[in-house]
């Protein structure tokens, strides 16, 4: 079964004061199989974030069908199995990472299953152990990014939806996060990530989709792409309509 399934999804933003009507997603269809790492690529404003928001039921498509594990995302129980890392690290900035982790663990019901040690383990992995009792507002951009990742992982979800997980990280941390993603892949998790840092994507993804102006230009296995030419070259060519 497809873990994530989208079929002719269309989303328009209504015209408003100072804004004309805009089609953000136009007849979008693709699917992500269980256990794969799916890279969702596209320039800024292509509709990547909108797609992710639809997967998490933050916004609703105007038409089309979305299924996650065979269930529509507007059933909130679906999100028990989803770990989400947002593009803008967003959480209540006066809370400490530890408190936010325990909040998330408890509302997902993972608190009892995994015990407190797991949070420490996660913080260790993301390099935030010394900062676990500091409020988030004192964090740097990179630290927030890592905190956001830790929050996505705390309840051990089957599906990970990561919006630009690598942006704002220094090279070393980026390397570590990629390692972490690989480990997660080994564990058999399905990972859906959007990015515009193509080199790193290449290292972890099994499949990619290229999106521009709300339309899918390419979906396929990364092996088919990177053998002939680099991903970056392929990406640029696709966007320019040369492929």
């Amino acid at each position: 079964m497809d873990t994530i399934f989208l079929e002719s999804v269309t989303k328009r933003y209504r015209a408003d004061i100072g804004r004309t009507e805009k089609t953000v997603l136009d007849n979008l269809s693709f699917c992500v199989k269980e256990g794969t790492v799916f890279g969702f690529l596209g320039p800024n404003g292509a509709g990547k974030s909108t797609t992710i928001k639809i997967l998490l039921d933050f916004i609703r498509p105007d038409s089309g069908r979305v299924l996650i594990n065979g269930v529509s995302p507007d059933c909130h129980e679906v999100r028990k199995g989803i770990g989400y890392m947002s593009e803008k690290p967003c959480a209540y900035v006066n809370m400490t990472i530890m408190e936010l982790l325990s909040f998330r663990a408890s509302v997902t019901g993972a608190g009892k299953r995994r015990g407190k040690g797991y949070a420490d383990e996660l913080l260790e992995k993301t390099g935030l152990v010394e900062h676990k009792n500091r409020p988030l507002k004192k964090f740097s951009k990179g630290m927030l990014q890592r905190a956001s990742l830790a929050l996505a992982l705390v309840h051990d979800p089957k599906i990970l939806i990561l919006d630009e997980p690598l942006s704002g990280l220094d090279p070393l941390m980026r390397y570590e996060v990629i390692g972490l993603l690989r480990d997660l892949k080994e564990e058999g998790k399905t990972i859906f990530l959007s990015s515009h840092i193509l080199n790193d994507i290449e290292k972890v993804c099994d499949e990619i989709a290229i999106l521009n102006n709300g339309r899918i230009l390419f979906v396929g296995r990364i092996d088919d792409v990177s053998i002939h030419e680099g991903l970056e070259e392929f990406f640029v060519k696709t966007l320019m309509g040369l492929q």
């Binding site: 947002s86 803008k88 936010l100 509302v107």
Partner: peptide, 12 residues
């Protein structure tokens, strides 16, 4: 600031 996403990305 999209802080609402933090809560709503949980099964809430």
């Amino acid at each position: 600031d999209q802080t609402v996403y933090f809560v709503l990305s949980c099964p809430v």
